[in-house]
Simulated assay, not measured.
Amino acid sequence: MKAEEHLLEVKGLRKHFSDQKDGPILKAVDGVNFHVERGETLGIVGESGSGKSTIAKMIMQLEKPTEGEILFHGKNITSLTNAAKRKLQIIFQDPYGSLNPRMKAKDIVTEPFFIHEKMPKRERYEQALKLLQEVGLDKEHLNRYPHQFSGGQRQRLSIARAIALKPDLIVCDEAVSALDVSLQAQILHLLSSLQKTYGIAYIFIAHGLPAVRLISDRIAIMYKGEIVETGTRDEIFENPQHDYTKSLLAAVPPSHPRLREDG
């Protein structure tokens, strides 16, 4: 019997850059392997420049791999039909930069329907209201432009757009990094709630461990273009094996002020 395929599988993925012909090569991603199962969250953690966002771009076909393979539902991602591609979405770090400033919220969240389904205007309006309510916004927000929202509200708007077509996988590329701690907790709670409702899988990319710990089932640690350690959330936080993972954990301040050293 054929083994059940992973939702997403990455094999031997490499992305090398060169500034000039025959010049030095930057190995942004260098031989990465991982998989994501249906309905789970894989956290990918590493410092800036470790290759995390480059992986996100290759999954979304915004960058072409130098080498390797990305399979979604068992099929090479480059050969997916438009119907299959709609099941793969992304949430960017900067919601303001990823939202059209000239479009109202109702048009932003229903643009996927206009592109993929040619949905009638009245039905799009009803769907827009439903999507906004699902992410904690309301009817009064339908006709607002992105600049009329707070940072947290804009990210909620981005999430509403991402879930519109009921994707199987959403890549969250530093999706809470630009928000303060209280807003991060709210957005993480929202993502978890939507995951339970729709069975969405996430690749949650971040440079810090606290947010990843709250949302991830498994965690992959990236360092200089490579994944140096992978494990469940408990394995990574309670029994880290790689020195880089240990250094990341050591850099996380204790959750309670009384546990911090005087200094």
Rank of each mutant, 00 (worst) to 15 (best):
S182M: 12
V176R: 00
D173Q: 04
L179A: 00
P167I: 13
D168S: 15
S193K: 15
A206V: 05
Q148H: 11
G151F: 03
I170Q: 00
P210K: 05
I170V: 15
A162I: 11
I219Y: 10
Q153W: 09
E174Y: 05
G208N: 15
L157T: 09
Q148N: 11
H147W: 12
L191I: 09
R156S: 10
C172V: 04
D180P: 02
Q184I: 12
L157G: 04
P167M: 11
Y202K: 01
Y202V: 06
L209G: 01
V171P: 06
F204E: 00
S158Q: 06
L214M: 12
D173V: 03
A178Y: 08
G151A: 06
I215F: 10
I200M: 11
Q148W: 11
S216P: 10
D173F: 06
S177R: 01
V176G: 03
A160S: 14
C172Y: 02
I227F: 09
A164P: 03
A220N: 08
I187A: 06
L165C: 13
H207C: 08
I215R: 05
G208K: 12
M222N: 04
Y202M: 02
A206T: 05
P167Y: 12
I187M: 04
Q153Y: 11
Y223A: 02
R161A: 12
A164R: 01
Q184E: 12
S192T: 13
E229F: 10
P210E: 06
I163P: 02
G199S: 11
F204S: 00
L190K: 07
Q153I: 11
R161K: 13
I170Y: 03
H147L: 14
